[in-house]
């Protein structure tokens, strides 16, 4: 369970990134956060595992405050939260398996991980994770030899190997073509349903959001302007919320995935 309590974020230059956010995300939900670029989607998502600090309020992960957590405590909370990035963020020179195993390092002491001495169970866990995203045959390939879609699946496997209870995905398909977009979103959905992992995804396009989400949260200028099940997220509703802004955005929409 993730809880936002009166969360606000003000950047050093005075710009308000988030304005008094109050949200509760239940276990097992598949949430898609939508909004125009600059609406604060990324800030909201990254504040959950504190890659971004918030200025006011508190964020609770399973009733533990990550906002107040320090050092080892903070790392333990982060260990339970997997993250998937727009640019995959794999170490390109390392093998696929080593990238997936890097999701395990927080479980072991520093010395052991420095020498790469992972227990057999960890390696099996990593291989299973790769198998789940159908890419286990590439385990010993260097990551830079994979396509973008394959790399994103490796990063999903990294989050799985981490045995995360929550997965955060920041624009996971923005660098992918429509076909691989579908594969990656299907993988995320499958994991959410089969393993019950709470999933929070940032997306730029509303129709992919409607296809996969159980609940949609709309952001605009750092405020929650929509929060409800997919059925309520109608075109009319969003037209009303974003108005002309949205029209402009879609006209120059960079990805064809949701334009029609």
């Amino acid at each position: 369970m993730i809880e936002f309590r009166n969360v606000s974020k003000t950047y050093p230059n005075g710009v308000k990134g988030l304005k008094n956010i109050n949200l509760t995300i239940e276990k097992g939900e598949f949430i898609v956060i939508v909004g125009l670029s600059g609406a604060g989607k990324s800030t909201l998502l990254r504040s959950i595992n504190r890659l971004h600090e918030i200025s006011e309020g508190e964020i609770m992960i399973d009733n533990e405050s990550i906002t107040a957590a320090k050092g080892k405590n903070l790392r333990h909370i982060r260990r339970d939260i997997g993250m998937i990035f727009q640019n995959f963020n794999l170490v390109k020179r390392s093998t696929v398996l080593r990238n997936v195993l890097s999701g395990r390092v927080a479980y072991h002491n520093t010395l052991r991980t420095v020498f790469g001495l992972f227990p057999k169970e960890d390696v099996n866990l990593a291989l299973n994770a790769l198998d789940r995203v159908n890419i286990v045959e590439k385990a010993y390939t260097r990551s830079d030899q994979l396509s973008g879609g394959q790399q994103q699946r490796v990063s999903i496997a990294r989050a799985l190997a981490q045995e995360a209870k929550i997965i955060l995905a920041d624009e996971p398909v923005a660098s992918l073509d429509p076909l691989t977009t579908k594969q990656v979103m299907d993988d995320l959905k499958k994991i959410n349903q089969e393993l019950g992992i709470t999933t929070v995804v940032n997306l730029h396009f509303i129709d992919i959001a409607r296809q996969y989400a159980t609940r949609i949260i709309g952001l605009n200028a750092g405020e929650v302007v929509f929060d409800g099940p997919v059925e309520e997220a109608t075109d009319e509703k969003f037209q009303e919320i974003y108005g002309q802004q949205l029209e402009k955005e879609q006209q120059r929409g960079p990805v064809g995935a949701g334009a029609e």
């Binding site: 790392r75 909370i77 260990r79 339970d80 997997g82 963020n89 420095v114 990294r158």
Partner: peptide, 23 residues
Amino acid sequence: GPREALIATGANRIQVLVYSVLP
């Protein structure tokens, strides 16, 4: 990017260095 990814997994400073910067 990889540095950020490692921080997000809960790795400590040395682990971040060894797994994302050194390679």
